[in-house]
Design a binder for these strands. Sequence first.
DNA 1: TATGAATGAGGATTCATTCAT
DNA 2: AATGAATGAATCCTCATTCAT
Lengths: 207, 207, 207, 207
Amino acid sequence: MPRAERERQMMDAAVRTFGQCGYRAASMDEIAELAGVSKPLVYLYLHSKEDLFTACIRREARALLTAVEAGVDPGLPADRRLWAGLTAFFTHTARHPDGWAVLHHQARTQGEPFAAEATKTRDELVAYVTGLIGPAAREAHGSPDLPDRDVAGLAQALVGAAESLAAWANETPGVSAKEAAATLMNFAWTGLGNLMDGERWSANALR
Amino acid sequence: MPRAERERQMMDAAVRTFGQCGYRAASMDEIAELAGVSKPLVYLYLHSKEDLFTACIRREARALLTAVEAGVDPGLPADRRLWAGLTAFFTHTARHPDGWAVLHHQARTQGEPFAAEATKTRDELVAYVTGLIGPAAREAHGSPDLPDRDVAGLAQALVGAAESLAAWANETPGVSAKEAAATLMNFAWTGLGNLMDGERWSANALR
Amino acid sequence: MPRAERERQMMDAAVRTFGQCGYRAASMDEIAELAGVSKPLVYLYLHSKEDLFTACIRREARALLTAVEAGVDPGLPADRRLWAGLTAFFTHTARHPDGWAVLHHQARTQGEPFAAEATKTRDELVAYVTGLIGPAAREAHGSPDLPDRDVAGLAQALVGAAESLAAWANETPGVSAKEAAATLMNFAWTGLGNLMDGERWSANALR
Amino acid sequence: MPRAERERQMMDAAVRTFGQCGYRAASMDEIAELAGVSKPLVYLYLHSKEDLFTACIRREARALLTAVEAGVDPGLPADRRLWAGLTAFFTHTARHPDGWAVLHHQARTQGEPFAAEATKTRDELVAYVTGLIGPAAREAHGSPDLPDRDVAGLAQALVGAAESLAAWANETPGVSAKEAAATLMNFAWTGLGNLMDGERWSANALR
DNA sequence: TATGAATGAGGATTCATTCAT
DNA sequence: AATGAATGAATCCTCATTCAT
């Protein structure tokens, strides 16, 4: 069997095991067995547990980002792009729960160097979302008065909400990717829309 | 030294260690040393690593929920209550980053029985938030036409966004609890406000 | 509470625990708890686990030997003396299963110095039995031609059979001490050979 | 080195260690060192201390039963069969004192599940002996009036006596297997009663 | 007389990793 | 390309024992 194929098998097994057990609890024995190969072969191809985990994070990160980007037609208006991106996101995470668990749960809880790797992916997502909603807001108004930092915070919140909803959608039977995306659009877009129209909730307004 | 105090010391050390290293990577040796006691004493008082971790989760969960509830004056209107709750939440998580890590990151990635414990806390939070935003929305309209499931989804998304922002606020220097709360209010309340007014973003509206 | 009484309580607890768990598996914690006292008190009175176990062996050995001797009237003929001794033996072991377990099972399997202590008891029993059957045989014949070594072997076998039957009688419901003694008399006194020829030793024949 | 051979080495070391120290006092370290391997290898092949001990009990039980059965020619008359069986028994226990200690002493004092395993062996032995002496007695008389329970008790006593004599023979220098067997035959076959009347069972009388 | 607090030492078990083939 | 054999190092946990009171 050619090396590339074998490597894929091993990574599949690793993602599944890491996703379900976590980095420390997963054992190389388990992974090798699930992959149907001997342990020395895993080491021959993937060098160490650390390397293997890193490779898993990278592969799943790439797959997620690719899926989101592939789901979005750059020619569409901002809200439809966001809708498409969210749908792609929820669809992918629903289809690859172990990969998503590796990225979202496991990588972030193992300290450096893994958390950094996961953060990189998240930052790419946030940047992508910022690119979606930031310019849109400004273009829509011709006004650049929405500070970058606010946009960054909003993108963070949006991505965070999306991550959280992904878990919710995966765990709640009968919640489809589309439904999760719609929930988030309801939540985010009406808010964003008004934000773009100049509305701003303010603690001061309370008094 | 009296037992109660020693136990507190041990739990502090445990929360710190579990929060930074994760359940598996944390070693009882490390915890005992950080607590300034011998390992057998840790076992005498807290029985096992599993029990210790569970005790940490419970203590931190109780502390967080208490902090949020204490920060909210039930006599205020809904938006101010939400604002107060979010501020209390971000303040607490900023002050107890290890406790928050235990709850949010570590407990949820260790499978049962820990995930269940963390989920319980989260569910309490979500229920609390649902209690804040659900009735408010209906009262505001005199109309009970906002389905429970939508409210649940919104509360999920809101808590998820808050959790995500907590990490962002902790990691980004210069972002205060108040600022994080404001960002989320901007994001959430304007959206919710409009939602309460009957607006609803819809994929169908796109065409 | 006076010291002697406390010591007895502790030894009772120790015999029970050692008898049921064995020397190594029994823990001082368990013994102290069963005795209803704190561990330091056990150490104050009985010094160490080793000392405690030795004390148990000695106490139970003395009790068994005393019971057997007390059951035998030295004025009777040999077969009746043997019958009485066996009955006393089986009665005592049935009444004190934990003490018997300590002597027969636990002490002998812990290597020196405990095995030696148990062997001493056994040797006293064998000597006692030798004293019962050896002279009797010679007197019966007026002939001293039964070598000492043979008698010793026979006494060994008899004691071994008795020990073995004690376990059997304890474990088999409905087997009384008398029945066990009768079985052994059948076996030992009459001999299988004669048994096959229809002879049967009987307790009733004694009167 | 092939696995089978390594396993045998480990079991040899384990039988020796368990036989001399007992189950609890024996340490896996000690066993591994005596076997000349590292501890993880012991675990890889034999899984746990419990499994290892059970495997030892089973191996030694099988060896003993096989030795006894191999020593008996089924075509011989009952007394010669008993003599042969006893000789084989004492020869085997003398040659494998540690195996015998594991079976007779250690396994029986460790509670379930080990005691059950040892009891199984003992029951097989008792059944075998019952098969030797029971039918013989009845055939010799043409009368089936010897109750089963009596035969069972006799077989118990005989096996118990044999077990006890095995220890005696092992510990007393100059007592051979044949001598131990002869003592027991004297005791069992002829009976003390007849022995006192001058009868003596003798191996030479067989021819 | 009696104990709450505390520990040094040791034991079972697991795991990432390598070597010889 | 692939593996059976093997281990150093660490981890969880227990226990006999003591000290200050």
